[in-house]
Design a protein around this nucleic acid. Structure first.
Length: 884
RNA sequence: GGGCGCUUAGCUCAGCUGGCUAGAGCGCCUCCCUUACAAGGAGGAGGUCGGGGGUUCGAGUCCCUCAGCGCCCACCA
């Protein structure tokens, strides 16, 4: 008994992922296969992991992204690139702060009581304790990251990068400080950038009420969805060209609650046709009103505190009310005054919400904030896409990217949080600003004592540096020199603006080059009904539970197969993952059979003249599969690549290749060895093609080949093209064998003939495939359960036998095997179908336009088809006559 | 208001530059525990390709239009 025999015999009838996956995950890391060497001289291929929140756990969206990354990087590694997939985590300012705050509150500890320093310490402790979880989960998934290069957005190097970026942008005039209305989240108590605000339609109420003119000559009607803000109105605006109000511009109205005189101003922003054509202006709580006020010189009147309750600027009766209570109170008060003109309800309008806690955003003056001046950054970022230095897959994402840049407004980067990169700006009592790389000891202007800005930077400010800060920037490191720009960025479309666009802007400005050459955009994972996965719906698929149940390969397979670029999102179900598990098992068992007699070592194909037609067919099909996988992955068509492999393994290698070769595996030594080598050769290469998608099972099976070098398939060569294996003749011959077998099986099934019952059959095949079909007839005999003779289709047919027409030949069966009536019915049905096709074909050929205009090949093909159908029809008719 | 995507079998989806009889997985029906695999094998049923119009010899595929679903962007008082 050879070694190979023992290995195969030792294989269980079922593949058990749990038994093999942890071992390989550990072995890969121990072997250092994923550790990049910037000095290797090989062509680089680098990707950075979109950093998950440091406190996060792996969800199925991560699993999708990680799988696609891993498919690309594992293939690139096998292709001989110097690969680096750099992992890490994000400090995720608001999200993490809120989590820790909530946790502390449960212990009865309030953040503010704790104080800034102590609180930040607590967050660090939290991070140390729970931070690494997602890394372990990614390893279970098989992610081939270079774990030795793991980074965190707040580690020392990256914090330095943030400072350098800030200072450089400041020095270049791209960062400034200003007082503006910001998107304030009253729950998280911080300002947000425009990108962090999610607009949603909300049912509200449009109230129209009347402001009395100060001179007592009447009133002016204004409409609003937020009546409570009238407490902070400092103006009324009308369109400059609106004749209805022209005479009133320059006069004032009187505020009904506090008697303030409020000027009526003209502004082009006002839409004459909306409502009454007059707008109340609340500059401190509405971005448009803020701008109108700037233009008209109206004062700001802040009526809310940080929690969005009314402050002391409003009449006493309203103080302390939160904004929703205030809305009702003010409306009632107006009602009491009898000045409400109309109430439209429900009135649907769009309202901004915090992307973290979903609280309604309150436009608010939060003091001086830092902004990134985007006008200096968008141009190169746009240009990079337009001249395809950055390309998108699918390409349709380029347009939204460009138009987002076009409409971009300055980016508010100040966050009123404690967890994050503190803004490197210091202020002295005289108001001088010091921005410095290293903590300064005094004001850079006057030397006075200074105090650092209390705020931290937007999390995305550090994220935008990720493709180069993780490589060592601002130091000029070997990693940075070798791996920047990254080859590919893989991410979901939901952070195209938040993250991708900003990395490109930052990369162009700070590095002078794009951060990555290709952006691969994937969708959201939804459940089978297309619903978003959510805890409340109970439809969340937990990737770790799936790995426990079906194995990581099964999960990866199902995700890769679902990742079709066509539609926006993908659907996933547990059944789909089960399908992946079944496939891994199929592969396992195929190997169990194919390697039964395999002696070990690199498989070697026997010389061409010793290969059977079926073997030549299998090799040809394998090469076609290889080429298709290659093309699909080059184009980031993950689903196509996966599906192609699935089809080849299951429907070709297993269903026909192995089935036909079984005979030879049982034959005597020479034949058996040849067959074993062919199957092993194909299987071994197929494992390599499959490895990026299903790394564990392929590694486990590949090991059984006992190939001395390399030690793992993870670093084996990616299969190279084998054009010499393309063999159309063998494909045609094997096609005929398949047709013969299938026709016989159909016949058997349709007539309820037991699989155990053997009968005679004659296959008539074209002269040019005759020898090849004869060579495979033994297999055909076994697969169809008949005693088969193969003859030239041109020879005389057996009288009295039933003829089953094939696309390319026929099969004959002896009489008396079946019920005549049933066979007549079967033939009649078949005849109808063929007749319909024949008519369609005839009509086409009778069409002069078709003959004249269609490509010659198409016409010739149609003629061949027509002839074939005619022959088939004739055969059936003869058959029917015979039966009568 | 602007833009994008989707609508193909009971379900989830493929169908590239228009051209064999529109495919796959799951589900369903029949038969089979045949020594690689019952997480399997063999066979089968099931589709007016959302509606309408057009271009073309020929349309699931290209164009127009209508309808429905989903998403993104927008200063919708």
């Amino acid at each position: 008994m050879s070694q190979g025999e023992r290995a195969a015999d030792a294989m269980a009838t079922r593949y058990d992922p749990q038994a093999v996956e942890p071992g390989w995950a550990a072995r890969w890391v121990e072997g250092g296969y994923f550790v990049a060497d910037p000095e290797s001289g090989k062509e680089p291929y680098c990707m950075v992991l979109p950093p998950p929140n440091v406190t996060g756990r792996l969800h199925v969206g991560h699993a999708l992204g990680d799988t696609l990354h891993d498919v690309l990087i594992r293939r690139a590694r096998m292709q001989g690139y110097e690969t680096l997939w750099l992992p890490g985590t994000d400090h995720a300012g608001i999200a993490t702060q809120v989590v820790v705050e909530r946790h502390l509150r449960a212990e009865g500890i309030e953040r503010r009581e704790l104080g800034r320093e102590a609180f930040v310490e607590r967050v660090w402790a939290w991070k140390e304790r729970y931070g690494g979880e997602i890394v372990g989960q990614m390893q279970r998934l098989g992610a081939s990251c270079d774990w030795s290069r793991q980074r965190f957005t707040m580690d020392e190097g990256l914090s330095r990068a943030v400072r350098v970026a800030f200072v450089r942008m400041y020095d270049a005039g791209l960062i400034y400080r200003g007082e503006r209305l910001v998107n304030w989240c009253p729950e998280d108590r911080t300002g947000l950038s425009d990108s962090e605000v999610e607009h949603e339609d909300v049912e509200g109420e449009l109230v129209t009420f009347r402001y009395p003119l100060t001179d007592g000559s009447g009133g002016i009607d204004v409409a609003t969805t937020r009546v409570e803000t009238m407490l902070g109105d400092t103006g009324i605006a009308v369109h400059p060209g609106d004749e209805r109000y022209a005479a009133l511009v320059g006069t004032t109205v009187t505020h009904p609650f506090d008697g303030r005189a409020i000027p009526i101003v003209a502004d082009h922003h006002v839409d004459r046709d909306f409502g009454t054509g007059a707008v109340k202006v609340t500059p401190a709580h509405d971005p448009n009103d803020f701008e109108i006020a700037q233009r008209a010189g109206l004062p700001l009147m802040n009526i809310f505190g940080p929690d969005a309750s009314l402050n002391d600027a409003v009449p006493e009766a309203f103080r302390g009310l939160d904004r929703y209570a205030a809305r009702g109170a003010v409306r009632d008060a107006l009602e009491g005054l009898g000045v409400i003109v109309a109430q439209e309800r429900p009135y649907v309008h769009s309202v901004g919400h915090c992307y973290r806690c979903h609280t309604e955003i309150e436009p608010w003056i939060a003091g001086l904030q830092w902004f990134v001046k985007v006008s200096g950054l968008t141009g190169p970022a746009k240009q990079a896409a337009e001249d395809t230095r950055v390309s998108f897959a699918p390409p349709r994402w380029e347009r939204p990217y460009v138009s987002w840049l076009d409409g971009l407004r300055d980016w508010n980067i100040s966050r009123q949080l404690w967890w994050g990169h503190r803004i490197p700006a210091w202020y002295c009592p005289d108001g001088h600003v010091t921005v410095a790389l290293d903590d300064p000891s005094g004001c850079s202007t006057c030397g006075a004592e200074i105090r650092q800005d209390d705020d931290v930077l937007d999390t995305w400010f550090s994220s935008q540096l990720w493709p180069f800060s993780t490589l060592g920037w601002p130091e000029d490191t070997p990693d940075l020199r070798t791996f920047y720009p990254n080859a590919v960025l893989v991410t979901g479309y939901e952070i195209l603006y938040l993250w991708v666009a900003r990395m490109i802007m930052a990369g162009m400005f700070l590095m002078g080059d794009v951060p990555f050459r290709h952006v691969v955009i994937h969708g959201l994972v939804r459940d089978q009904q297309g619903r978003k996965m959510s805890k409340s719906l109970g439809n969340v698929i937990d990737p770790i539970a799936m790995i426990d149940r079906y194995g990581a390969d099964a999960l990866r397979f199902s995700l890769a197969r679902a990742a079709t670029g066509g539609q926006q999102d993908i659907t996933l179900s547990e059944e789909a993952i089960e399908g992946g598990r079944n496939f891994a098992n199929k592969l396992w068992n195929a190997a169990r059979l194919a390697l039964r007699m395999f002696p070990g070592g690199p498989p070697a194909l026997p010389p061409a003249e010793r290969r059977t037609p079926a073997e030549r067919w299998l090799l040809s099909r394998h090469e076609a599969c290889r080429a298709e996988v290659e093309a699909a992955l080059d184009a980031y068509r993950f689903a196509d690549a996966t599906q192609t492999l699935y089809r080849f393994v299951w429907s070709e290698f297993c269903d026909w290749g192995l089935e036909v070769e079984k005979d030879r595996l049982d034959a005597d030594a020479g034949e058996r060895e040849d067959a074993t080598q062919v199957l092993a050769w194909v299987l071994e290469r197929t494992l390599r093609l499959l490895h990026p998608t299903m790394p564990f099972v392929t590694e486990e099976l590949w090991r059984r080949f006992e190939i001395p070098e390399p030690e793992v398939v993870a670093v084996a060569d990616w299969p190279s093209p084998q054009p010499a294996l393309v063999d159309p003749e063998a494909e045609r011959a094997m096609g005929v064998v398949q047709d013969v077998v299938t026709a016989l099986r159909q016949f058997r099934s349709q007539h309820g003939i037991s699989p155990k019952e053997r009968f005679d059959a004659v296959a008539g095949v074209a002269a040019d495939v005759l020898d090849a079909v004869i060579a495979q007839s033994e297999a055909a005999v076994r697969l169809a359960g008949v005693t088969l003779s193969v003859v030239d289709a041109g020879a005389d047919r057996r009288a009295g036998w039933t003829t089953l027409p094939l696309p390319d030949g026929y099969v004959q069966l002896p009489p008396g095997l079946f019920d005549t009536g049933a066979e007549r019915g079967r033939l009649a049905k078949q005849r109808a179908s063929i007749d319909a096709d024949l008519r369609r074909s005839a009509a086409k050929l009778a069409n002069d336009g078709f003959i004249a205009k269609a490509a010659a090949g198409v016409v010739a093909q149609e003629r061949t088809k027509h002839e074939r159908l005619e022959e088939q029809l004739a055969a059936i008719d003869a058959q029917l006559v015979e039966l009568d």
